[in-house]
Design a protein around this nucleic acid. Structure first.
Lengths: 199, 199
DNA sequence: GTCTATATTCCGATAGAC
DNA sequence: GTCTATCGGAATATAGAC
């Protein structure tokens, strides 16, 4: 039952290495070395490097869908649910660098097949739910764009956080998840909810 | 005077290849083949692959700074200038895929030295100007975060556009630069300017 | 399921002729 | 400034023993 799960271990370590250096910069030798098996053994579990990459992505992304959907389906006003989601997702992006980097890598480098797999396996359901975080009274078309804005704003903030130490006026606490999440929630509420503008 | 500028040609083609496949996936052989010279010749112009990568990035990013600063320094209300900048920058990200992909690559993969070089060479001055696009009456701290939101929102939108064909309710025109820019401008005005909320 | 050993191709980089 | 030729090592992938 608790026999060493070599295959799972390979996927975990592959995710970490691919996230850190990119697919082509991580050789099967490097990976095998980190896992503690021989290179040939990797070919027992996966038929090629490309196959391993695909399985790694599925492994990492699939873990996130369930909690994300669970969070988005909790009851509350759209404004409350928005705040809760932003808080959770910003924290996820900041704290799970493996997830974050693999996600960005796929968005930028992924071909049609891989993007479709990503959309189908993890993003479709959450995306529909995120669309409902904008004020329900707004037109449907705006709510679709709003969903992209909600996710995109968080993604952009976390990416640009890497530049923060080198920008004039940048201070470390501006990359703190709580600070970022609060700021983003305020921005999105002003944009997509009819609430008072004041702080 | 108009002698063939091999070095410049190498940089242009390197930018395109690195943007498309990533640094480690583009060999000096591949690059030399595309340029139409031998691999050894690359080492006459650049001392190493790493050196070539750094020079390629500097070459691509430096071209963008001047027009960006020029645009940001045009007169107008902060609201007008915001709209003009969003329009221009979204179009840049959508239409210059080389710039877009190299930028994202650096944000995610760049080490401290390369990020600092990027910040110093191209982003520092524009970033200060972007900070001034938020309503000047707002507190300074919010205006710094606002600058990150302004750039981050555009970056996020363009990245997520790749997923659009695979999301429920996604339609091609939602990736159109004019549509995206208009939406983003509306969002940012609601968030950072004290204007009427109506359409 | 894991290993050793190896085939084949490709990598970054250099030497030296023209 | 560009070339041919080559070095030493690393890449993916496979064959076959245990």
């Amino acid at each position: 039952m608790h026999a060493v799960d070599t295959r799972g271990e390979i996927l975990e370590i592959a995710a970490r290495l691919y996230a850190g250096l990119g697919y082509s910069a991580v050789s099967m030798r490097d990976l095998a070395g980190e896992v503690g098996v021989t290179q040939a053994n990797l070919y027992h579990h996966f038929r090629s490097k490309d196959d391993l990459i695909r399985e790694t992505l599925a492994h990492v992304f699939a873990q996130k869908t369930a909690p994300m959907v669970e969070l988005l389906e909790r009851p509350g006003t759209s404004s409350q649910r928005l705040a809760a989601f932003v808080n959770w997702f910003v924290r996820l992006l900041v704290e799970d660098r493996v997830f974050f980097r693999l996600l960005v890598r796929e968005l930028v480098d992924g071909d049609g097949a891989r993007l479709k797999a990503l959309a189908d396996s993890v993003l479709e359901r959450p995306f529909s739910l995120v669309s409902s975080l904008a004020d329900p009274q707004r037109p449907k078309d705006e709510r679709f764009l709003a969903a992209i804005s909600i996710i995109g704003l968080m993604l952009g903030h976390v990416q640009l956080a890497a530049l923060l130490p080198y920008l004039p006026g940048g201070r470390p606490e501006q990359a703190d998840p709580s600070v970022v999440a609060r700021h983003i929630t305020t921005v999105l509420r002003r944009a997509f909810h009819d609430e008072a503008r004041e702080k």
